[in-house]
């Protein structure tokens, strides 16, 4: 090829192919989402047609209204939001505290406890799900916020992520704080936390999305419509007697909007942030 084509032409050709491949991949990745968005703007008649219509004829908003009347989607979203926000805050607090201990406090057994914390990441959640269900049930926490929040407030992954970040902070700051007679609490809240905002944000986005997307646990511990989370509510839509497609997809669209927004805002934090400490030992 190099002999047949001059170099600039070859580069141009290569670039064109590059974009063509990218476009095809992008179409494949985004198609299910575009389809969902389009279908939620279709009228019931349009969505039932065969061959299936790919584009709505006009922006019909009735499906959104109907789906909001049919299922208490607002309640689901609110529940999910309360739970995810609480889990996010809780994980940031517990994980940053523990990570602080592992980096800045020199105490006996530190290495041992760190190994224990790392080992928690190896225990699959499913192994503990049966006893946890029994615990939560015994405490009368079924169908409550605390039943869906408290078991998730600690995170071994979070501790690991933040520890790696704290280790990268300049050591001199710690020495200076020590000389100034700054205690651990003041050092932690006044210096380490403010400096770690990027890492805390990464953990926050990650924890929030994970809590927002939880499926098995809320399925087990909720049974009333007032406590359902979005994820359970959405999959219930599918089994309602009215399985009108565009209604279901209108619901999905509504539910997807907040997470898409969060992704658009937090993508930069996620790229880089998540792997800052996780990849290289």
């Amino acid at each position: 090829m190099t002999t047949l084509l001059p170099r600039p032409a070859l580069l141009l050709l290569r670039r064109l192919m590059h974009y063509a491949i990218l476009a095809i991949c992008a179409l494949a990745v985004i198609y299910p989402l575009v389809y969902t968005a389009f279908a939620s703007f279709m009228t019931p008649d349009e969505s039932a047609q065969y061959p299936p219509k790919l584009l709505p004829s006009h922006l019909y908003l009735g499906s959104f209204r109907t789906v909001l009347d049919l299922v208490p989607l607002q309640t689901f979203v609110l529940n999910s939001f309360v739970i995810s926000a609480a889990v996010m805050l809780g994980q940031i607090i517990t994980a940053s505290m523990a990570a602080y201990a592992f980096v800045y406090v020199s105490f006996r057994g530190r290495a041992f406890w760190f190994a224990v914390f790392i080992a928690t990441m190896m225990i699959p959640w499913e192994v503990t799900v049966i006893p946890n269900y029994l615990t939560v049930k015994a405490w009368g926490w079924l169908d409550t916020y605390q039943g869906m929040i408290v078991p998730f407030l600690a995170s071994g992954f979070g501790v690991f992520l933040l520890r790696q970040f704290f280790l990268q902070l300049p050591r001199e700051l710690h020495e200076a704080a020590k000389i100034d007679g700054c205690g651990h609490v003041r050092h932690f809240t006044g210096i380490v936390l403010p400096l770690s905002r990027p890492a805390l944000a990464s953990l926050g986005v990650y924890a929030f999305l994970n809590a927002w997307n939880m499926y098995l646990w809320p399925l087990l511990v909720t049974n009333s419509d007032t406590m359902r989370t979005v994820q359970i509510g959405i999959s219930m839509l599918q089994f309602q007697e009215v399985t009108v497609w565009n209604l279901v997809l209108a619901g999905v669209t509504l539910v997807l909007l907040p997470s898409m927004l969060l992704l658009a805002l937090g993508l930069k934090q996620l790229v880089g942030g998540l792997t800052a400490g996780a990849v290289k030992g």
């Binding site: 992008a26 299910p32 969902t36 359970i232 959405i234 497609w245 997809l249 999905v252 997807l256």
Partner: peptide
């Protein structure tokens, strides 16, 4: 392109499954 390829990270198991159950529908699925 980066935004598009990252999009699925914001999706949960249940929303993805519901969307694909529509796509996979034997007669009306696209």
């Amino acid at each position: 392109f980066r935004f598009i390829f990252s999009l699925p990270v914001a999706l949960s198991v249940s929303t993805s499954s519901v969307i694909w159950s529509m796509l996979y529908h034997p007669t009306t699925g696209t």
